[in-house]
Design a protein around this nucleic acid. Structure first.
Lengths: 220, 220, 220, 220
DNA sequence: AATGAATGAGAGTTCATTCAT
DNA sequence: GATGAATGAACTCTCATTCAT
């Protein structure tokens, strides 16, 4: 069972373990991330680990929750500075991609959680969706978003972000899966395309003329 | 090193191993999927495994490629029967969700590939994106889709499908992460919402006349 | 249980197995010499092996006995051509070294026999010693060799040959233990020194003057 | 990778492993000497082994080096107490045989090293030869040994010791290859014969009369 | 608070041997 | 006579976890 540190020194030790664990989980994967490796990276003794965490799975969960809180914080902060809803959405995505670039651990860890800790994984996604759906609902009330089920939309949007981030941030970074190279921002044109898709979908613009419908287009 | 069987009996054995591996990888995860478990499930001797596969990772890769081929086949088949592009897209997604419901292995296995076999994972996503982007490009030429970068859009669409599938197929199924329960189709309203999003995005409909806005709709 | 072949084809198969086994045992060592490898090298099917040999150990023993017969044959032949006993001994050694150069398998296999088949090892050494001791005894009777225990001397001589061969034939060949390089004869000066040692031992030549003997030295 | 123990307890554990390994390698042979057996004999847990040794081969090498150091120490100590060179040689051999009797591991292990660790084997022989050759060279300078190549002679002498030891110590002991029975000293008459051979070789004593030589004998 | 020696279940893998074809 | 698919015991090695110091 984990224990909260009682001294300042203990607090530092615990924090170092958490940071080391994020690193090691991200670079080696849950199963190849041995406790020895984590403690070595943290620069503390092996046995000390069990003073602060109940086991491997427990520290994993905590790392997931920590990353989740941080990415949501980054997104909210970015969105708050925005002027309108569309801008907010754009900045939220940008913040998400930036966080991904700076903390590839996020992806790599979340995906592993599938088996390691399904609960933690679910928590992660649901928390993001919740705030997303909340924003959408508000926007709907404000007439900025058309009538739709905010939760379904939120899951879809998150999915877009997830795979676009994987492809254009993680894979670009290392060229081989993201294990090397410097983090980079999302290219502008990718973000532009993504936002356009989110706003308008795939459908061609309605022609200026009155009664446009898909049937008409087809005759063309 | 894997070897191709030289007899009919060998071919059967190899196939049984692959099927068992898909099962075990999906239910237990790569790391807890021991060779013993796979061979037991396949009903063959432990040593026999190494007659056909070089090791765990090798059979994993083959399972991934196999699932990938099958899901793409299912999607293409479904889309081919469609009458127009919109319908094709809808049926493609439906097929994908149905496949997900019937083979939860797909998700569970792909996500693990992150560390187990990054190459296989990448191959999987890229293959799907390729045919997706191809379809979008063709639709663009036909004027059915507005001008956009087909690859970026393909990644985004795939992401939507991925998370919607996770949430409304996998999680619903078992209620706890997908380890039990009967597979079910995607609920109609979810698919409807998704398709609407893909077609039109979030933006409110452009008012036909001057002052139309959501406020009007609401009074209804 | 091994079986003698009943057909000409069978005889050839058996011989090929034996030859392959000698090769593989010599290059890989008993334990890393798998039956598969032996049969592959022999170009026959795995199961066929058990038609001719009862098992790994059985073919090993046969290889040892075969090598033993051949090295003894080579030595006897060489000695027979010699003119006197000293010459015979020299030529016997030379033949032994030449055989060693051409069949490093001899050493490598005999030494492994220590555990694999102590009986075969013992047989090998004893057979060589027997003929050696026999020759020494005869030479003694002829007054060409001073009175001594022929068996003890035979073991000692064989030991000299063994380590000289190891050092100046096997190790020279590959430079690293004998796994490569072309076989070479024993250098003349090495053989000369060895023969001198066998004939005269280490002691300095008795001084030409009359009564010198080791007794004198001792008084000192 | 092996590691040096950091505590007194660790040092004791490591030593116990080394001793057990010597035992097991000697009685079972390298390949049948499983780590389990070694740790069981040492009375420690299996995993503990890997705290101190990188693997089987690594502990094997260390056992070889250890035995080598000990046998050379025994020989040098014995020789040091001797009064003259001849005596020194005799006592050196006797010490070697005694060590052999007390540590049959020496032979059994060295011979296996042929494949298991050629480097260790070579090191073993070369170290012994080096000190041997050194002693011979010194004796030569003192006029106690006739002119000869000390290295070649050293290899030959070592070979004598090796096979005499095998035959009259190891094989006598158990009667069946040395796996049982009490260790015993080399019988005096064997040592006497050996020393005589080393001193004087095989040649008959020069007859007291003047011009005797082998040429004369031949005419006979 | 901190340490690292010790543990053993369990993993992947090899291979001598059997036997149906 | 010849084959190779099948087997499972046995091996080496890893690592989360415990505990005496």
């Amino acid at each position: 069972m984990s224990a909260q540190p009682r001294t300042a020194r203990g607090t530092r030790t615990r924090a170092r373990l958490l940071a080391a664990a994020e690193d090691v989980f991200a670079s080696a994967g849950y199963h190849d991330a041995s406790i020895v490796r984590i403690t070595e990276q943290a620069g503390i003794g092996l046995g000390t680990f069990y003073l602060y965490f109940g086991g491997k799975q427990e520290i994993f969960d905590e790392v997931v929750d920590d990353l989740n809180a941080r990415v949501r914080h980054a997104m909210t902060e970015a969105a708050r500075a925005a002027e309108d809803r569309f801008d907010a959405e754009r900045e939220g995505f940008r913040a998400f991609f930036r966080f991904t670039a700076q903390h590839p651990a996020l992806y790599r860890i979340i995906r592993q959680a599938e088996f390691v800790s399904p609960g933690a994984q679910r928590r992660h996604y649901e928390r993001i969706v919740r705030s997303y759906a909340h924003g959408l609902a508000a926007a709907q009330d404000a007439g900025e978003v058309r009538p739709l089920d905010p939760e379904i939309a939120a899951w879809a949007l998150m999915g877009m972000g997830e795979l676009i981030g994987m492809r254009y941030i993680l894979w670009e970074a290392g060229g081989d899966g993201g294990t090397g190279g410097a983090p980079r921002d999302i290219p502008d044109h990718v973000l532009d395309e993504l936002m356009a898709l989110i706003q308008r979908g795939l459908a061609p613009d309605a022609p200026p003329s009155a009664a446009t419908s898909r049937e008409d287009v087809r005759h063309d």
